[in-house]
Structures are given as C-alpha cells and as structure tokens.
Amino acid sequence: MMQLLNKRFTVAEYHSLHEAGILTEDDRTELLRGEIYQMSPVGRRHASCVKRLNHLFKNIYKSRIIIGVQDPIELSNESEPQPDISLLRWQDDFYLAKHPTPEDILLLIEVADSTVGIDQTSKLPLYAEHGIVESWLVDLNQECVLVNRNPAIDGYQDIQVFKSGQSLSVQALPEVAIEVNKILGLDVINT
C-alpha cells in the first residue's frame, strides 16, 4: 500500500523553491509551521484597508518606525508568514541583512474578510507562540478590530474587541489613539 509523503519545509528550503523558480511571487504563498500555504486573492475591501492602515501609520509615526506591507517576517526555521501590516523597530538598513524577527516587531496586523477563520486558528496562535507582543485582526465582515496581547505558548491571554466609535492604541506606542472607524474606512463611507 502506498502512503502519501507529507513534506515539511524549512525557511531555507522554502527560499530555494523560489530561487529555483518552482514558486514565484505570483504564487502568493507563505510558510507556516513548515507547510506552504496558498494565500487568498486580495479583494478590493482587503486591499483598501491595507492601504488605509499603511497611510494611517505613516502619518501617525512618521519616521520613528518601519512599516512592512505584506512583507515576510521570520518567526522560526519553519515559519515565514507575510502579515498584512507589520510595525517594526527602526533599523537603518531597513532589514536588508535579514527579515524581521519577533524581537523587531511592535505590532502585526492581519486584515480578513474571507480568511477570518484561518487567521484566528493558524496565524494568531503562531504569532503568540513566538512572542509577538501584539497582533490585531481587522475583521471587515464584523466591522471590528480584535486586539491580541500578552502572548503565551497556548495563544494570546488578553483579547479585546473594538468596534465603530471606539479608539485603540498600539501597546508599544501608546501616545496616539486610533479610531476604529478610520481603520475600517467607516469615516469615509459615512460622510
């Protein structure tokens, strides 16, 4: 009887697949726990929210941080996800020598419409397991932002839901409150 082989990849092997042309940028993949995942196509609402978040953070924090937009982060030898937005500690070489690692990350954000379940069951637990101090899940369908803090090996210990009309701030950069309506684009829709 033939058995199916389940191959787990390291980050180096994953990069080799790209270098060999087996995987291309058009494939839109990411490596989570040694498995290669095909990322969902980016819809209009999702793309708009990512652009809006990038714009918001650029205006708020100017040049105090580096903003990654759908860029890889290296969590371990088997995980290199591509969060929608990452707020990173300033580094003069803009992470030329290496992808950001957990120590470099102030905040990770996933924007979800069709991927809420995958983000909640796969990506957020992975972020917590690797000590990412804060992650947000922008749920476009429920029009809310789930703020995840206090990471532990079994997930985030502090999860708060912020909705329209409320404000929140980045734990590592608490001096500025950000309106949920601005994150979700409700301020534009309702005007």
Rank of each mutant, 00 (worst) to 15 (best):
L4W: 10
L5N: 13
N6E: 15
K7Q: 14
R8S: 12
R8V: 05
F9S: 05
Y14M: 04
S16C: 06
E19T: 12
E19G: 02
A20W: 00
G21N: 07
G21H: 11
E25D: 13
R28H: 06
L31F: 10
L31A: 11
L32R: 09
L32A: 06
R33Q: 13
S40Y: 05
S40V: 08
V42P: 01
G43V: 02
H46C: 04
C49K: 00
L53R: 02
N54A: 07
F57V: 02
K62E: 05
I66A: 10
I67E: 01
V69W: 01
Q70L: 07
I73F: 02
E74K: 15
S76T: 13
N77H: 07
E80A: 15
E80T: 11
P83H: 02
D84W: 00
W90L: 07
Q91F: 01
Q91K: 15
D92H: 11
K98E: 15
H99E: 10
T101Q: 13
P102T: 10
E103Y: 06
D104K: 11
L106T: 08
E110R: 04
V111F: 04
T115I: 04
V116M: 01
I118W: 09
I118K: 09
D119G: 10
Q120M: 12
L124S: 05
A128E: 00
A128G: 08
E129S: 13
E129W: 10
E129T: 12
I132N: 06
V133L: 08
S135C: 14
L140H: 11
E143S: 14
C144F: 03
Y156G: 01
Q157M: 10
S164F: 00
S164E: 10
G165M: 06
G165E: 01
Q166D: 09
S167R: 13
S167W: 03
V170T: 03
L173T: 02
P174Y: 11
E175V: 08
E179D: 15
N181W: 06
N181F: 05
I183Q: 11
L184I: 04
I189V: 14
I189A: 11
T191G: 07
T191R: 15
